[in-house]
């Protein structure tokens, strides 16, 4: 038995307890809820990715880098990067440019829900159905050409499918709802009082957009751009169905498909997939990094 009787608790007894200290480092019960998701993504994403990465360095023949060497030596392969970008970047930008003014108009409308439902439809229908629809609609005997000919605007049917523009149109249609809905949610997230305040301070409509909305929306636009771009970049069905899969719309996913299922060279296919990933990543990182130039924070002017 010890002789000293302490009435005051030890110094350690004061201050935050273990749970509070863990919470301050971001570890609490909520963190545990993220564990299943982390395991899930490990099993479904990280493992296949790592597997593919390793596989791409184990070519059928040659040194460990020979898949990559082959890709960048063969114009038929490396040109797919440019062709894919040449489709996906303009489509994504155009979608964003169309989505912004429409979102600004729709934000004031009452039947937003109906419109949203109409726009979600193409997403649920899937790219193949849209592609087949377009094939009929834009084809040489399709309504579009027939209407233009009836009005005498053209004498020969325009070639709108089985080329670049067919894929372009299809990507635009399937990508727009997604881009638009995301843009709309960012636009409606901005306190309308800010625009009113700008108006009372003498800013006209363009100035209000330029100096109030645009800076507040830039981070959101960047995210929208990235997500829409990634979707467009992995275009496959419409490039095959509506495009010229051996020519101008031979996109990178076609190259990967051919390597895997026509040449049965999974190692090469993995290498193509890796290159595809790196290109996407480079663009996404560049766009997201530019977000740092803009204000990020709550988009309301309310008192706090």
């Amino acid at each position: 038995m010890t002789a000293s009787v302490t009435t005051t608790p030890a110094r350690d007894a004061y201050g935050p307890n273990l749970r509070q200290r863990l919470a301050a480092r971001g570890l609490d019960a909520v963190t545990l809820l993220a564990v299943p998701a982390a395991l899930f993504s490990l099993a479904l994403f990280v493992y296949p990715f790592a597997f593919g990465l390793v596989l791409s360095f184990e070519p059928k023949a040659g040194g460990w880098l020979s898949n990559y060497q082959r890709f960048f030596a063969d114009p038929f392969l490396y040109e797919t990067i440019g062709k894919t970008l040449w489709l996906s970047l303009p489509v994504t930008l155009l979608n964003l440019f169309l989505a912004v003014p429409i979102a600004f108009r729709v934000r004031l409308m009452r039947n937003q829900r109906l419109l949203t439902a109409i726009l979600v439809l193409p997403i649920t229908l899937g790219t193949v159905l849209v592609a087949e629809g377009l094939l009929n609609y834009l084809g040489p005997q399709g309504w579009f050409n027939r209407t233009l000919m009836t009005f005498g605007l053209i004498s020969q049917p325009l070639k709108l499918v089985h080329n670049y523009w067919g894929v372009f149109a299809s990507l635009l249609i399937t990508g727009f709802p997604f881009t638009f809905l995301l843009t709309l949610s960012y636009v409606t997230g901005i306190d309308p009082a800010l625009e009113q305040a700008a108006a009372t301070l003498g800013a006209n409509a363009w100035q209000r957009f330029r100096h109030v909305y645009l800076p507040l929306l830039m981070p959101g636009f960047a995210i929208t751009f990235c997500l829409s771009f990634v979707q467009a970049f992995s275009v496959f069905p419409s490039a095959v169905l509506l495009g010229a899969p051996a020519g101008p719309t031979r996109v990178i996913s076609i190259a990967a498909y051919q390597a895997a299922f026509e040449e049965y060279d999974y190692s090469m296919a993995s290498a193509v997939a890796m290159i595809m990933g790196v290109v996407q990543l480079a663009i996404v990182v560049a766009v997201l990094a530019s977000r740092g130039l803009f204000y990020r924070g709550p988009a309301s002017g309310a008192k706090g």
Binding site: D191, A197, G202, H211, G297, G301
Partner: peptide
């Protein structure tokens, strides 16, 4: 007309100086 809003409606991305100078800049 100058207006002070019920919820202030300050521009969250502009600092105090830029907020105050906004009307003059426009």
């Amino acid at each position: 007309f100058g207006m002070v809003f019920q919820n202030y409606a300050l521009f969250p991305h502009l600092n105090v100086r830029q907020n105050i100078g906004f009307g003059l800049k426009m």
